[in-house]
Amino acid sequence: MNATMTTFRRHLALRCHWVLLLPALFGACHSVAQSQSIGPEQLIGASQQFLEELVSAHLQRSSIQGRHEVEISRLDPRLRLAECTRPLEFSLQGQGHPIGRLSLRVRCTGTTPWALLVPAHVRLYQPVVTLVHPLQRNSLVQASDISLVEQDVSLLRQGFITETQQVIGQKLTRNLGANQILTPSHLQQAEAVRKGEHVVISAGTGSIKVKMPGEALSDGAVGQQIRVRNLRSERIIRARVTGPGQVEAGM
């Protein structure tokens, strides 16, 4: 199946130098006001602004619809760092995208250099396909079985689906309860042909097509190859399922 699964695995250039009046990679960056020392509130504020701009640019560039929240973890209130004679530098550590739990490296390369890791969490909220009531394994999902519910997708490690049309008509691979967020692993394509059913075998190329009756010898979803008995010749052939009751054989 082609379920949309938001996995944010694109590689990003995540390094940004905050320089006064100089546009950075993901928007205008700003220098941190200099003072005799830099405290936790200044670091949190600068880190928050950096991530807000970074995430907004990432979502726009990736055409991802949703709202986000940036949370910077509390720092030790006793923290005092020497003022930086150069603009602070920010980069993400070991992360290919700015969503989820992050470690932000703040670095000073001035007269008194220092570096600090600032923990952060970027939440991304999107409507995802969710079951409204329990369904048994092998059930075909109907429109009345699902709804779109906003969730923090940064926590959905198993994937998720945002389009209801990519779920309707699919078959469940296991029993699922109410309020279950559907993932690609929960679904498989439903059989268009069942074993023992009569099917129409199409064969030929271009405008020349020959059709003949057949019998499916196994279940098959669209695109799968199955064994089919040609009821005219009694030969057993392999054919590709093209739709309900329809298979196509090569010449």
Rank of each mutant, 00 (worst) to 15 (best):
R101A: 11
L102G: 02
L102E: 04
R105H: 10
R105K: 15
R107V: 09
R107I: 09
C108T: 03
T109K: 11
G110T: 04
T112H: 13
P113T: 05
W114R: 05
W114M: 06
V118C: 01
P119N: 04
A120L: 05
A120V: 07
H121E: 11
H121R: 15
H121S: 09
V122I: 08
V122K: 08
R123P: 01
Y125H: 11
Y125L: 01
Q126I: 01
P127C: 01
T130V: 10
L131T: 03
L131D: 00
P134A: 11
L135D: 05
Q136L: 14
Q136M: 13
N138F: 01
S139R: 14
S139A: 15
L140V: 15
V141K: 00
Q142L: 14
Q142E: 13
Q142G: 12
Q142H: 09
A143S: 14
D145R: 00
I146V: 15
S147K: 12
L148R: 05
L148P: 07
V149S: 00
E150F: 05
E150P: 07
E150V: 12
D152I: 04
D152M: 00
L156Q: 01
R157V: 10
R157P: 04
Q158H: 15
Q158A: 12
G159P: 05
I161L: 02
T164K: 13
T164A: 06
T164N: 03
T164P: 05
Q165S: 13
Q166H: 14
Q166F: 03
V167Q: 09
V167C: 04
V167E: 07
I168R: 03
K171I: 08
L172F: 08
L172I: 09
R174Q: 15
L176A: 11
Q180S: 15
Q180W: 13
Q180I: 10
I181G: 06
L182V: 07
L182H: 07
L182W: 09
T183D: 06
P184E: 06
P184F: 05
S185I: 10
L187T: 06
L187E: 04
Q188V: 09
Q189D: 14
A190Y: 06
A190L: 00
E191L: 10
E191T: 09
A192D: 13
A192G: 15
A192K: 08
K195P: 12
K195F: 07
G196S: 01
G196C: 03
H198Y: 10
V200Y: 04
I201L: 09
I201G: 08
I201Y: 08
I201N: 06
A203E: 13
G204M: 02
I208K: 15
V210K: 13
P213F: 13
P213R: 15
G214S: 05
G214E: 03
G214T: 08
L217G: 06
S218I: 08
D219K: 01
D219M: 06
G220T: 03
A221M: 07
A221H: 08
A221K: 10
A221T: 07
Q225C: 07
Q225K: 13
V228R: 02
L231N: 05
E234G: 08
R235Q: 15
R235G: 08
R235H: 15
R235M: 12
I237K: 11
V241T: 07
V241G: 04
